[in-house]
Design a binder for these strands. Structure first.
Lengths: 190, 190
DNA sequence: ATTGACTGTTTAACACTGTTAAGTCAACAT
DNA sequence: ATGTTGACTTAACAGTGTTAAACAGTCAAT
């Protein structure tokens, strides 16, 4: 069972190299052959460790989302948490080149338990007194906004267009604040 | 100058066929060769009419955005206009298969006049009394939200995940309402 | 010690992709 | 009749994700 021969390649090293390649070459340059070359190996070897490129992108997307969830500062109200989450998301998208485009095009894993996954997403908000339905809807909204914004911002020519007449950071903050504080209307009490 | 030989191919027919192909095969199946085949022509012939695939996608994106702008019902307040715009956007994205992903990946045209373009985007809101800076920021926010939401929703496995416990239409509406009504805070007077 | 299984990788190949260069053929102007 | 130009074809390049088959190596059992 436990083999002693060092395989020299595993999922983690693979994903790590993929991120390094992404940083250097962008999403277009992230090809299986180049990734293999960087790992000193032939392309088909990668398929021993992952099913296809989609799975690789999925793993990378997970590694982009995870720190966003983890990096939300402690919050006393679910609205503060959502704002923190939004900013954390945007920050993570910005740290990895083409991060938003990657997350937008990465397929979600398909073997997971649905209810479990949803519960995990909604957990931080549920802990702050929000029912799961609203929690999911709000999180989905914030993710959509951050993802859409980052895609928008990452669109080269579009960026140059708006850069002269729009402060991206400030405008994102305005939009996020508006979105979250607007949730109050959809929420009884509080 | 005016040739009488029917060229049989022009930009409009090209874009039209591209949309038909998109509907049938999805964004992945939208290749230059397949598009050419559908037009009864060889692939390189397309390059007589467009510079590259990016330009084709850009034209298609324009044809997706345009009816969204045109389809916003008359509004007395900029907030009503923004809500109408958001819904129109989502409707257009939904009309064309992979519409959101297409718009997210299509490059913006690069020869246009920046100020002019921005002015045109902000015009409907400016007419309702909003200064151009805020108008651009708000429109960008609504586009980002709708785009991100549609990308989110179009992500197959993710959709199946959330479909059981999330009403996409209703949740989008909640988010959009929240976003737009939240803009009031960023706005003096009104 | 030899066999057999299993892991991890290689080589070769398939069916594609976007795109360019060069050639072709009709319609027009001179 | 000649040349120009518009619109297209054929051939090709360099690259893509992915699969099948072959091949080392290392392990467990015989």
């Amino acid at each position: 069972m436990a083999r002693s021969a060092a395989p020299a390649l595993d999922r983690d090293r693979l994903v790590g190299a993929a991120f390094a390649l992404l940083e250097e070459e962008g999403l277009e340059g992230l090809s299986m052959r180049r990734l293999a070359a960087r790992l000193g190996v032939q392309a088909p070897a990668l398929y021993w460790h992952i099913a296809d490129k989609g799975e690789l992108l999925g793993l990378m997307a997970q590694d982009i989302y995870a720190p966003a969830y983890a990096g939300v500062p402690h919050a006393a109200h679910w609205r503060d948490w959502l704002r923190g989450f939004g900013h954390a998301l945007r920050a993570t998208f910005a740290t990895h080149r083409d991060g938003a485009r990657l997350c937008a095009s990465a397929p979600a894993p398909r073997d997971r338990d649905v209810a479990d996954h949803a519960a995990r997403i909604a957990a931080p908000l549920a802990a702050l007194g929000l029912d799961q339905g609203r929690a999911l809807a709000f999180v989905a909204s914030v993710i959509s906004f951050a993802l859409g914004w980052a895609s928008f911002e990452a669109n080269g020519p579009m960026h140059d267009y708006l850069d002269e007449m729009l402060d991206f950071d400030e405008s994102f903050d305005i939009g996020l604040k508006a979105l979250v504080s607007g949730f109050a209307d959809a929420c009884p009490g509080r």
